[in-house]
Write a protein that binds this DNA or RNA. Sequence first.
DNA 1: CGCGCGCTTGATCGATCTCAAAGGTGGTGG
DNA 2: CCACCACCTTTGAGATCGATCAAGCGCGCG
Lengths: 244, 244
Amino acid sequence: MSSAAPLFASLIRKLRLLAPTLNEEDEDALLALPHRLEHVRARSYLVREGTIPDECCLLIEGYAARSKLAFDGGRQIVSFHIAGDILDIQHLFLERADHDIQAITDAAILWISKAELRKLVLRRPAISVALWRDSLIDASIFREWVLNVGRRDARTRIAHMLCEFIARCEAVGLGTPQRMNLPFSQEEIADATGLTPVHVNRMLRELSEEGLITRSGRALEVQNWDRFQRVAGFNQAYLHAAAA
Amino acid sequence: MSSAAPLFASLIRKLRLLAPTLNEEDEDALLALPHRLEHVRARSYLVREGTIPDECCLLIEGYAARSKLAFDGGRQIVSFHIAGDILDIQHLFLERADHDIQAITDAAILWISKAELRKLVLRRPAISVALWRDSLIDASIFREWVLNVGRRDARTRIAHMLCEFIARCEAVGLGTPQRMNLPFSQEEIADATGLTPVHVNRMLRELSEEGLITRSGRALEVQNWDRFQRVAGFNQAYLHAAAA
DNA sequence: CGCGCGCTTGATCGATCTCAAAGGTGGTGG
DNA sequence: CCACCACCTTTGAGATCGATCAAGCGCGCG
C-alpha cells in the first residue's frame, strides 16, 4: 500500500465497478503512476479550450463542470462532475481540449501524467476496458443531454438535470433524494439546461409550489423520488449502472 | 487480400487516420473478423433502444442517424452518420443500447461480431487506440450538439448542423460545399436541431434569401463557405481532424 | 393518373427571454 | 463584532422567437 492509496481510492472503486476483472496488480500499477495533488478554489479553470494538456485530471473532492462557449458569448455546460470522476479521459487520445473544465466549488484535483497513463493503458487491458467504458458512459450522458436540451420543456429539463445529479451523487454516497446539497448556482443550472437564470428561478419555484421539491439555500429535498423522476421523464438506463 | 477487403476499405482508411501506427497485421486481423453484409431500406432500424446487440454495425453505404425518444413522444436525433462511420462502437463495452440507430436512406451495413471485435481490441493496441479515439471524437461531437441545441438560435443552429455535415462529407469525398446532396428531410433536420419542421423550413428559406445557400430539392450549394461557417459559428476543432 | 409524403406558407399563440430593480446571504477586512 | 461588498436569488412587465394549427402545393412513385 503506497501513500498514494487514499488519493486513488475513489478512482479504483469506480474502475472496479466498470471492469470486474481489475486485479491487485492493476491497482498497484495505478498507484505507481506519477501524480500531483492540487487544491483549487471555486471557479478555477482546470483545462482551457484550445490548450494541449499533458496531464489528465481526477476530481478527488468537490464539484466541477465542463463547458463550451458559443460565438455570441453564451455558455453551455455539457456535464457536471462529482468526487471520483475522471474529468478529461478524452485527453488521453485527443491532443487539443475542445472545451473548458472548471471547478464549481473549492476542489481537490489529482493530476496524472497523460503519457504515463497512456503507457499503462496499453499494458493493462483491465484498466483499458474500465477507462474506455467510463468514456463511453460519458458519451451516453452527453446524448441524454442533447435530448434534454433539445426536446424537453424548461420545467422537465431542470427536473431531469436534478434527477441525474441526485442519482449520481446517491450512487457514491454524496447525498440522497431526501437530503441533497446542490453545489451550483441557478446561473449554472441555466447554463446546463440552455435556459436563463431568471427562468430557472421561476421553474424551481413552480416545482416547489407543486410540492415536488423543498429548497432552502442550496439544500434540496425531493418529497417523492418516484414521482419526481416521472415528472422529469428520468430513466437511469443511460447511466449504464455507473450509478450502481 | 481477402474478399472482405472492399467492405473494410473505408473503415481501414479511417482507422489509419486515427492511429498512424496501424500496420498490415492489424489490417489483416480486421479483415479476418467474422462479418455479414446487409442491405437495408430507408427508415429501417438497425438497433433499438433497450436491446442488447451482439454485433457492432459499420455503415458502408448510405446515411444513418442515432436518436432518442422523450417521454412525450418527441424525437431527438443525436448524430448523423455517413459511409465509413462506425455506428455503435459503444456496444463494444456497454451491454444495453441507450438509443435507436436508424438508416435514413437505403444503406449497406456491415455487421461485425461484438465478442470477436472485443477480443481483437484487447490483442492489438493500434486498433484499440484507433477505435477509442473514434469514440472520443463521437463524444466531442455530442458535446458540440449540446451547445448547438442549448445555446444557438434556430438559424445559427441549422447552419451549424449543415456545416458539420458538409465538413464531414467533404473529408471523405462525399461532396463539397459547392455540391452537396442532403440525404435528410426537413423533419429530420428538425429532430436534430430541436426545432419544428415548419420552423426549419422558414429558416432554410431565410438562409436562401440571404444568399448564403441555394437549394433545389435535396441538393444544396453553399455560396461562400467561409462566410457560411462564420454565420454558423462553426469551428472544425471539435471534429479533431476526423475530417482530415 | 392518382396517391402520399414532404415542402411551403399564413395566422395566431405561448413559452421563454430581456430588461430592470429590489432583497438575501455569506465572506472578508476593519 | 460590525459593516461592507460581491454574488446570488427573487419578482414584475413587456417583448420575441419559435410552436401550433391549418391549408394548399408539388413531385416522385406505383
